[in-house]
Write a protein that binds this DNA or RNA. Structure first.
Lengths: 107, 107
DNA sequence: CCAACATATGAAGTTTTATTCATACATTTG
DNA sequence: CAAATGTATGAATAAAACTTCATATGTTGG
């Protein structure tokens, strides 16, 4: 969380602060499992941890860590309903980000 | 480079392979300095290492490492002209990716 | 209340990335 | 060709991120 955190580099559209925020979100998304989570929640409104875990065949604890991180960074939200906790996509912009790159034919 | 690299998780638009590629590009972009580089090259066609180094006030060697990585991953291209090496944005899609997130008012 | 289920958390270990520093390589100029 | 300039590279370290595992917490049904 510190780097070019002190230089001019102005003159572009984005401020240093904004670049750091963008980098932060990108980093939070930059992982196959997390991209899969976004894809899943882009199509489902909300899913329980078990749902996601089964669909992606990712172990519960690991998934929880991913979900917690994404929630912490504002990408997801969660609500409990009985024993289950349902996660939903809060920052829907990340869908576009992924779509944008996914559309690259050369990938 | 290995994770959910072996599960079903199909049914979404993106294949596992594609998700990994997208994650790969996102990871390569997810850094304030590299975002600044993209911004700069989005507005300039091509710039020498010294140009970039001065504008972003990032030390030469460190910058070189960033540039090399981005080039390796196909985001940038470079050509030598005399003493200088000019870098340019090859994968222009990353501009949109950044713009997309940068547009988020809540960031 | 207890057992069972769903999810979270935290520590430890491992792997990746970032940064620095010293130095090497390439090109031009005098 | 030597010196100067511009850039790359590699080793070493530091810092993050990822994964696993053991265990804790919350919730419901009996």
């Amino acid at each position: 969380m510190s780097a070019a955190t002190s230089a001019p580099l102005v003159d572009m559209g984005l401020s240093i602060e904004k670049m750091e925020k963008v980098a932060f979100i990108l980093k939070t998304t930059a992982h196959p499992t997390r991209i899969a989570i976004v894809q899943l929640l882009a199509a489902h409104d909300s899913l329980s941890v078990t749902d996601i875990s089964e669909r992606l065949s990712v172990e519960q604890s690991l998934l929880s860590h991913h979900l917690a991180g994404m929630k912490l960074k504002g990408i997801l939200s969660s609500t409990r309903d009985g024993k289950n906790i349902y996660y939903a996509l809060k920052m829907r912009e990340v869908i576009d980000v992924i779509q944008c790159l996914a559309a690259c034919t050369f990938l």
